[in-house]
């Protein structure tokens, strides 16, 4: 059974940023896309991983002594020689400061739902619930179906965060019936650029979006991560605006750039992507918002800008 069970990278409790109200967010491990700018690079690989945060390390040497593969090198700033590492996790078990830590844990759906239901009082009073994020949970339709069934029996509101890269038939059959709200990432409109920066073409994503918006009864909310020089270009913003306009959605959120990828990649023993190491400045954000609304203005007769929260600017299209 273990084989069909996905690894969970982490369960974040009490989140106010991943849908309405107070929520628990399940980060699945494994994603068909390999976006260079991914905010959660530790969720891309479906296999367990070991991360290293040097600032937590007290150089006690417990890890080096424990590693059966001789893959820990105290003189290496990344600590682990990934070519030798078999990801057994013993080094993380003995690390006293969580400088080395293991990412990926199996839960049965019953275990996971019990954990998620611990906060149900907070969901109830805040209009919150559970958000499935990742990684890409649609990689595991049977598991997700079983989990969502348990959550729905308990009356929990479910949000799905997805890259849109899934088999629509299976998704529609197993997952869609349980979901209350979908946050759907639209990243790049240019096919080649999409392949370059995410590892996959974008047709399936755009098609699925279309189908969801036109066929499904569930609320679908597109979101676009702003990555300087990659997604946050005038050409891409313009194409996105055009695409969204044609699909007749009424709103979109632009998510300000998060440099987590740059920080996290070295912790996982990967080269850091060539991306800015800082968050956007407020004026940069405003510039992009201005550009985007200008593009919308040019397209049609005006749009409404309604900021949801400081960190998320949502543009509401006029209903046509």
């Amino acid at each position: 059974m273990e084989a069909s069970r996905p690894l969970i990278a982490t369960v974040k409790r009490g989140s106010l940023d991943d849908g309405p109200g107070i929520r628990s967010v399940v980060f699945f491990k494994g994603c068909p896309l390999k976006c260079t700018f991914c905010q959660n690079p530790e969720t891309q690989d479906p296999e367990p991983e070991i991360a290293f945060r040097s600032e937590q390390c007290i150089r006690c040497g417990s890890c080096a002594g424990a590693c059966p593969e001789g893959a820990v090198d105290l003189d290496d700033s990344n600590r682990i020689r990934r070519d030798r590492c078999v990801r057994c996790g013993i080094c993380a078990v003995v690390c006293p400061g969580r400088a080395l830590y293991f990412i990926g844990r199996y839960y049965t759906t019953v275990e996971l739902s019990e954990l998620l239901l611990r906060d149900r009082a907070f969901y109830r009073y805040s209009g919150g619930g559970v958000t499935l994020s990742g990684g890409e949970c649609t990689l595991y339709p049977d598991y997700v179906e079983s989990l969502l069934h348990l959550l729905k029996v308990a009356g929990i509101h479910v949000v799905l965060e997805t890259s849109g890269y899934f088999d629509y038939g299976i998704f529609e059959d197993k997952i869609l019936p349980y979901v209350d709200l979908i946050y759907y990432d639209i990243k790049l409109m240019d096919r080649q650029a999409h392949i370059k920066h995410t590892g996959r073409p974008n047709e399936l994503i755009l098609e699925n979006f279309h189908r969801l918006v036109s066929d499904a009864e569930v609320e679908v909310h597109p979101r676009m991560p702003l990555v300087p020089g990659i997604t946050a270009t005038r050409a891409n913003l313009s194409a996105v605006a055009d695409f969204l306009y044609k699909t007749r959605v009424t709103s979109v959120s632009l998510l300000p750039y998060n440099p987590a990828a740059v920080e996290m990649a070295p912790c996982l023993g990967r080269p850091a992507p060539k991306l800015p190491g800082n968050f956007m400045k407020p004026e940069e954000e405003r510039e992009i918002y201005a550009m985007f609304s200008e593009l919308l203005e040019g397209m049609r007769d005006g749009c409404l800008i309604a900021p949801e929260r400081e960190l998320k600017e949502t543009f509401l299209f006029n209903k046509i």
Partner: peptide, 8 residues
């Protein structure tokens, strides 16, 4: 949020 936390 404040009210929700207290009620929870």
């Amino acid at each position: 949020n404040f009210v929700s936390y207290v009620k929870g």
